[in-house]
Design a protein around this nucleic acid. Structure first.
Lengths: 211, 211
DNA sequence: ACCTGAACACCGTTCAAGT
DNA sequence: ACCTGAACACCGTTCAAGT
């Protein structure tokens, strides 16, 4: 993917470090990701990263932001692939989410573990908000088509996102175990859960809210 | 909470180490939890834990198992508190889940980050299964009362659990931000999401499943 | 402005040795 | 059987110094 360059000068070292970190993260996991290793792969001394990142956490934040961009892209793809089927857009965006987490457990771990919860990195917060916004777009498409119940988009988005995110996290954390999470197994499970979410748990639809 | 004892001999060191680890985890976070620190607090040398835990991961697994026991207890409490209201049992069990994650972010981080996903610790796997089982009991109570749609309990449980877990994780990971997550804010958000989950997203209930 | 090398305080883990 | 102390290879981070 990238050739070996002898040295990174000027200002591209920051990007080069993020680039170098991603395969290390995939191979060695989040605990195996080391500032010194990243620097070695990028071909600089182990103190050079400190010119571009305040500390290790700042590098991790930059990597996590890239992860959110992938989720955003997954929503955009689903929207484009099924232009007039907003329900399907939602389901496929959810499947893409599932696939992402299972395919890239290490970066998911980094993004969602809570280790970066205290971060106020503008880059990271904005990437996360953009991802949520791209799902809300899909919900809005459905709303325009009269697909969903009459609740604020944010509320519907939050519930749908919580469900798919929770399912993905449960798989990633090993709360639901399978010898191997093949694509078809993920699809089957995703279909069951999204069906139940869309239809609702209650047998009879009562008052809009009670207590 | 515990007096200082000069030395742990015999076989209670294992439990003492888990006990010692929990407040360290709460104070210093999962990255700040160090085998050497735990040993110091327990009053033994930093190599003593290796008599009782294969490595650091094994200690973390034992701590995570304790976390699952708390979730199980939360379900049991909700069941006991509202004996003839299975819907309320479900909602309150969900609230307890939310409170747990917000109150104890570090142990939640440990339990759900995926770092322990590869573990085949019998203790941990069983504690997690028990927790899921205790939620399924609550779903079964509702099924017996004719509350839910006619789907397998496991399917309903999975969807409900995914939703509450996902919401909790999104809060813990900072995907949903609030200056402070007070109990009433958590209740408001939990109510909105559980309402939507129970009622379903779709305006019209169509075929049970389509594609 | 950007990078290096030595240095510091800390890890997880192993191993010979003690009781 | 259970614990200790020294040792090893590794971290993140700081800082004076080089270009």
């Amino acid at each position: 993917m990238a050739g070996k360059k002898k040295s990174y000068h000027h200002k591209n070292l920051r990007d080069a470090l993020v680039e170098a970190a991603i395969p290390i993260l995939a191979d060695d996991g989040v605990d195996g990701l080391t500032l010194r290793k990243v620097a070695r792969v990028a071909g600089v001394s182990h103190t050079a990263p400190y010119r571009h990142f305040r500390d290790k956490a700042a590098l991790l934040e930059a990597i996590a932001a890239v992860g959110y961009q992938h989720l955003t892209a997954g929503c955009a793809d689903a929207e484009r692939a099924y232009p007039d089927e907003p329900r399907r857009q939602l389901v496929e965006a959810g499947m893409a989410y599932l696939f992402f987490v299972v395919d890239r457990p290490a970066i998911s771990h980094l993004m969602f573990s809570g280790a970066l919860a205290g971060s106020d990195s503008q880059e990271l917060v904005q990437a996360a908000e953009t991802a949520v916004g791209s799902l809300m777009r899909i919900i809005d498409n459905g709303k325009r088509a009269g697909l969903y119940i009459d609740r604020p988009s944010r509320q519907l988005t939050l519930t749908a996102l919580a469900t798919v995110h929770g399912l993905a996290m449960m798989i990633a954390a090993g709360m639901i175990r399978e010898p191997e999470w093949t694509r078809s197994k993920l699809r089957a499970l995703g279909t069951i859960v999204s069906d139940t979410l869309l239809t609702g748990l209650l047998r009879e639809r009562g008052e809009e809210r009670e207590q």
